[in-house]
């Protein structure tokens, strides 16, 4: 092997080694890379009861009920499950029915998710208002695909 071939080999080995380490590391810690759990994760019972966590899903259409002051109640859904959410505070501009949100909070004894903070999770669609209809699904919802189950995939 010439010196140049040795250097070529060293560079290839470095990139391959670092990539392999990254793949192994991120596969092992997949759960920790997730920014939020989904309603399905929460209802599967595999998470500690009442634990503080972040829950992500779509705001179910027609489920938003505004109470006194800043109190708001709505249903958060992923592709298969739903969780009722209660929150008191300021909502981000993009909070809409049918849009994604991420709520920080915990499940209380009555199986309602009590949120202390709500962030809007915007989707990747950019369209003017008059063509917005074409990107929603038949039942008027946005796609639920961006909400990946944490517990199902890691088991």
């Amino acid at each position: 092997m010439t010196k140049r071939q040795k250097r070529m080999f060293a560079v290839a080995a470095l990139v391959a080694g670092v990539s392999l380490a990254a793949v192994l590391g991120f596969t092992a810690f997949r759960k920790n890379m997730m920014y939020f759990y989904t309603p399905s994760d929460l209802l599967s019972g595999s998470l500690p009861a009442g634990a503080a966590l972040q829950l992500g899903g779509l705001v179910e259409r027609g489920s938003v009920k505004r109470g006194e002051g800043l109190l708001i109640e709505f249903v958060m859904a992923d592709c298969s499950n739903q969780v009722p959410v209660r929150y008191e505070g300021v909502l981000p501009d993009l909070f809409r029915e049918g849009q994604g949100v991420v709520a920080t909070g915990h499940m209380d004894a009555n199986h309602v998710f009590v949120a202390s903070r709500i962030l809007a999770k915007h989707d990747e669609n950019y369209v003017p208002p008059n063509v917005a209809k074409s990107i929603t699904t038949a039942d008027g919802k946005h796609t639920c695909a961006p909400f990946k189950s944490v517990t199902a995939a890691s088991s």
């Binding site: 991120f26 997949r30 890379m33 939020f36 989904t38 999770k121 961006p146 990946k148």
Partner: peptide
């Protein structure tokens, strides 16, 4: 990152 994991950042609009 936005494809493999749950993130607050939205997914790719063009390069997906």
């Amino acid at each position: 990152s936005v494809t493999w994991w749950n993130s607050l950042h939205q997914g790719s609009t063009i390069l997906s």
